[in-house]
């Protein structure tokens, strides 16, 4: 397969607020191949969620979106609302962080799954209902035939997320945008949800997994895209990025996830050049210049946006800090 399913190139989403323009997404580039799971990682506020919402045009109308997101040969950015609606839920589906609030309390879960189906498929109510039961079974809700008539408040948090996933896969989307799908549930439920998601991706659905939990990434993702302050700073195969994090920010992220590093007080990130330079232990004068371009790092597909990896420099000093926090163990 030559062209990727989703390619995001230089995506920028600037949202005007009372306190000025928020550059929520400020230069994000990555690709997702068919059947592939890509993880978007970064700390809170790094623009992961807004990136997802920008792809299907769910950001506020006042936001300015530049750059390009192409999905299956079609440019999504700048597409009119009606055309986007045919893609949302149908070919690209979202799973949100908080499953409880993502379900409408006044409808039964069956009604909500049926709604997702009838939005895109011309089916009769009975067929949609049968389909809803099948989907509930598929996502692992026991007694799906009875529970289809229950309301969201009668489900546990983990089950609600399963229902939300059932809604997302109702129209067999090619791409699933999973925004922190396991953050709001406890660890055991998390593991089961991850198993469900990996089952889905194994059956061919591509997934953009948004999370700040690197363990989840290690379990599910084929490739990793690291965001910092709305910018992609590193991307590459999961093994490569976690095994040998190249960008100083990624190194810090991996270390903090492993409980190694101590938190530093954040300053406001500079607007130009490398936005991480004020906190970077390897910052040099060149960091304040042009925004660093992506430079290849060792293994194929692994690249970092850091001046130290430019061809005329020697990255060994930076790479010396790169310790794999844990071994990436994936059975795929």
């Amino acid at each position: 397969m030559s062209d990727p399913l989703l390619s995001v190139e230089g995506l920028r989403t600037h949202i005007p607020t009372e306190g000025g323009i928020v550059r929520a997404v400020d230069g994000v580039s990555f690709e997702i191949d068919r059947g592939e799971t890509v993880a978007l990682v970064g700390e809170s506020g790094s623009g992961k969620t807004v990136t997802c919402e920008t792809i299907t045009g769910l950001v506020p109308e006042t936001a300015t979106v530049t750059g390009e997101a192409r999905f299956d040969g079609e440019t999504l950015t700048g597409l009119e609302e009606n055309a986007l609606r045919r893609i949302r839920g149908n070919r690209i589906a979202h799973v949100f962080q908080n499953p409880r609030s993502a379900l409408d309390p006044v409808y039964t879960v069956g009604d909500q799954i049926a709604e997702a189906i009838t939005l895109h498929r011309d089916v009769r109510e009975r067929e949609a209902r049968e389909r809803a039961v099948a989907l509930l079974g598929r996502v692992g809700i026991p007694n799906a035939g009875e529970r289809v008539d229950d309301h969201p408040h009668e489900f546990s948090g983990g089950q609600c997320q399963r229902v939300a996933i059932a809604i997302a896969i109702a129209c067999e989307p090619a791409l699933l945008l999973a925004d922190e799908p396991t953050t709001s549930v406890d660890v055991t439920v998390q593991a089961r949800l991850l198993a469900l998601l990996s089952e889905l991706t194994a059956s061919g659905t591509s997934m953009l997994l948004v999370t700040h939990d690197l363990r989840v990434v290690a379990t599910l993702a084929d490739r990793v895209v690291v965001l910092y302050e709305g910018q992609t700073v590193e991307r590459g195969p999961t093994e490569a990025v976690f095994g040998r994090p190249a960008h100083p920010y990624t190194q810090a992220l991996v270390e903090s996830a492993a409980g190694v590093s101590e938190g530093t007080d954040r300053e406001d990130a500079p607007a130009d050049g490398c936005r991480f330079r004020n906190e970077c232990p390897h910052a040099i004068d060149a960091c304040a210049g042009e925004r660093p371009a992506f430079e290849p790092v060792g293994s194929p597909g692994h690249a970092a946006a850091c001046v130290h990896y430019a061809s005329e420099r020697d990255p060994s000093e930076v790479l010396a800090d790169s310790e794999p926090a844990w071994t990436v163990n994936r059975e795929r």
Binding site: L58, R85, I87, R88, G89, H94, A116, L119, H120
Partner: peptide, 13 residues
């Protein structure tokens, strides 16, 4: 509410 965004993400106008 989340379900409004969720519904829009599912393709509702």
């Amino acid at each position: 509410e989340g379900y409004v965004l969720a519904s829009r993400a599912a393709g509702a106008s």
